[in-house]
């Protein structure tokens, strides 16, 4: 269904990056692009949507060529039928919830479609309001509904839940799962939340430094193939206690605190407020 083989030279804050991505997705796949920040996940999504120029390669969807550098074919974003949920939602501030969806409605299509979608994401009471008056989760649902108005076969989501708190995130993931099945979509999600990916995606595409290093089911990627060995977390030592012949370190990683016992003889290597890196091995012991 989606065949993508593209190359692109990116210039980021960390210097240049040669992006070379190959992807093959079947109809009905729920794929997740997984990787650290700045490896080219969002760029891949943008190039598929036609929002960023591609240097070389080919993008084919349902046997239709969207981009081919040798044949000099490059469809405009307007001509690529897909739905896109932006990281910042990109709701039009001048339009109400209803008008945002109405704007997306193709000519001649029935407005019933809008009502159905608004009902599905439970926004009936808020349809006359402007996006600025909505909460993050509500805005996210509007963005999701708007992306579906044109009934695209493909849905792209760029870290759609990153700015939301845990409870709302769970609920929206359920919505997305339901929508994916109900509309028989082929969905590509950019995420680095392992829990989210395991819950939603049947395929995980691991991207490291601009290249696809693994494509497998989410379970395989996160267990058998051992992604966690390359996963690195940064933490800060907030407490050091001596217990018998062991030293217990309390390490804060974002909002969580974990404890790690180490032999007392390593005492000199650690101090309070020190920033340390933990790799996947840490969790295996």
């Amino acid at each position: 269904m989606i065949h993508l083989d593209i190359q692109k030279r990116l210039h980021g804050a960390k210097g240049g990056l040669n992006l070379a991505i190959q992807l093959n997705l079947q109809k009905g796949d729920f794929a997740c692009l997984y990787g650290a920040s700045g490896v080219g996940k969002t760029s891949t999504l943008r190039m598929l949507a036609g929002l960023m120029p591609v240097d070389q390669g080919e993008i084919k969807v349902n046997h239709q060529i969207w981009f081919n550098s040798t044949k000099k074919i490059n469809l405009r974003p307007q001509d690529r039928s897909l739905g896109y949920v932006f990281q910042d939602y990109a709701l039009f501030p001048n339009m109400t919830v209803w008008e945002n969806l109405r704007f997306a409605l193709p000519k001649g299509a029935s407005e019933q479609r809008i009502s159905d979608l608004i009902e599905m994401v439970e926004l009936g009471d808020l349809q006359g309001q402007k996006p600025a008056t909505l909460s993050g989760g509500q805005q996210q649902r509007v963005a999701l509904a708007r992306a579906l108005v044109q009934q695209p076969p493909i849905l792209l989501l760029d870290e759609p839940f990153s700015a939301l708190d845990h409870g709302i995130r769970q609920k929206l993931q359920d919505y997305l799962k339901q929508i994916h099945q109900q509309f028989e979509l082929t969905t590509i999600l950019v995420s680095h939340n392992v829990h989210e990916i395991t819950k939603l995606a049947n395929k995980v595409i691991v991207i490291v430094d601009g290249k696809v290093t693994q494509t497998a089911s989410s379970q395989q990627v996160f267990t058998e193939l051992g992604v966690q060995q390359s996963l690195q977390l940064k933490g800060e030592i907030i407490k050091i206690e001596e217990k018998g012949n062991e030293l217990v370190l309390s390490i804060q990683i974002q909002d969580n605190v974990i404890q790690k016992s180490i032999p007392l003889k390593l005492k000199n290597q650690y101090q309070l407020d020190q920033e340390i890196e933990l790799n996947g091995d840490f969790f295996m012991h």
Binding site: P77, R80, A90, F103, P106
Partner: peptide
Amino acid sequence: LSPSLREAAFVLGKS
């Protein structure tokens, strides 16, 4: 204006 507003309109098929 956020560039994504323009891009969102393009993806929705608008000229």
